[in-house]
Design a protein around this nucleic acid. Structure first.
Lengths: 171, 171
DNA sequence: TAGGTTTGTTTCAAACTTGAACCAAGCCCG
DNA sequence: CGGGCTTGGTTCAAGTTTGAAACAAACCTA
């Protein structure tokens, strides 16, 4: 089968998208690195934890929410733990499990960094978009993400759906 | 001044966007790594070169088009040069300059990889979006990119505009 | 034209990411 | 029970990115 190349419109959209996402991620990383001494992903880890019940989450669940590999998460958590921003705890119900728990210091760091981060996201993203566009962005993003998730490590169609639950947060 | 937090709509859009861009970039990187043995950025370098006059471009111009730092480009170009996919040439008009020139092998690799890459972009992105959404994505991306560019290394307002030209491609 | 600044590029060390092992601990089924 | 398969996490080496520093050539400007 011969390739269906991108139409000019698609080309333009693709290039604009790639450029924008690079620039945006860069800007956000730089701001957070400056103001909080950590890249965006690390900030996100703290952020997700802060919103989780008891401010703790199992590694796998955390990786799942952040859409990153376990390996990447392990590295990041190790660093954050060294910095005292979170603690690893053992899981009582599943001895394989490891739980990342935000420390008070981690929470404090997050609180200090949040305003600057939000300002950045606002000024580089939302201040540039109309309300309508914000909605469009969400829909487009959701569509993309959906297509990429159901794929993942192919659940193989005949997989038993109710078995695909993530393990308990072990609270 | 007190922080203007994100509205729920903005929150949703932001999270969806972050997730989508992570997943998409991951998927594309993996596909290209598999099929062409290089990450997305490296493929883009070859691609940009292939469309440039004489398939060559100065480092700075290349970095500018790709929206990456010179340092990052240097590293990537060094690798690609080792692989024989491009060559560095001296610039005759500006002895500081360095030019990246696509080799025939580089072009061949690009040609082989292109169909798979396009398929991936198509199936993960454009197949999921309506025509309308493609247009929206372009506009949104352009708006974001614009805001982030004019910033860059602040041209300092009083800068002389006509001096800000990029150097000749030195063809 | 000498000295100071800017511009183009590379270099270097430290930080981060990747993917493929690896090691347990749970799970399953005979 | 006792293997074998799956799952949760980490480890390790190789590759990539970052940002600051180093250089060198080009460009002023007095």
């Amino acid at each position: 089968m011969t390739t269906r190349w991108l139409t000019p419109e698609e080309q333009r959209a693709w290039r604009a998208y790639v450029a924008a996402s690079l620039l945006l991620e860069d800007a956000i990383d730089r701001q957070l690195q400056q103001d909080a001494g950590m890249p965006h992903l690390y900030y996100s880890i703290l952020s997700v934890l802060s919103e989780s019940p008891e401010r703790r989450l199992r590694m796998t669940d955390l990786a799942e929410r952040l859409k990153i590999t376990r390996s990447r998460l392990t590295y990041a958590v190790t660093r954050l733990e060294k910095d005292g921003l979170l603690r690893r705890e053992a899981c009582r119900y599943d001895k394989r499990g490891s739980i990342a728990a935000l420390t008070d210091e981690g929470f404090a760091v997050l609180e200090r960094a949040a305003p600057g981060h939000v300002d950045t996201v606002r000024s580089f993203l939302f201040d540039r978009l109309s309300e309508e566009q914000v909605g469009q962005l969400e829909e487009i993003s959701a569509a993309i993400a959906q297509g990429l998730q159901e794929d993942g490590t192919r659940p193989a169609a005949d997989d038993v759906p109710w078995r695909r639950r993530s393990s308990p947060t072990c609270s």
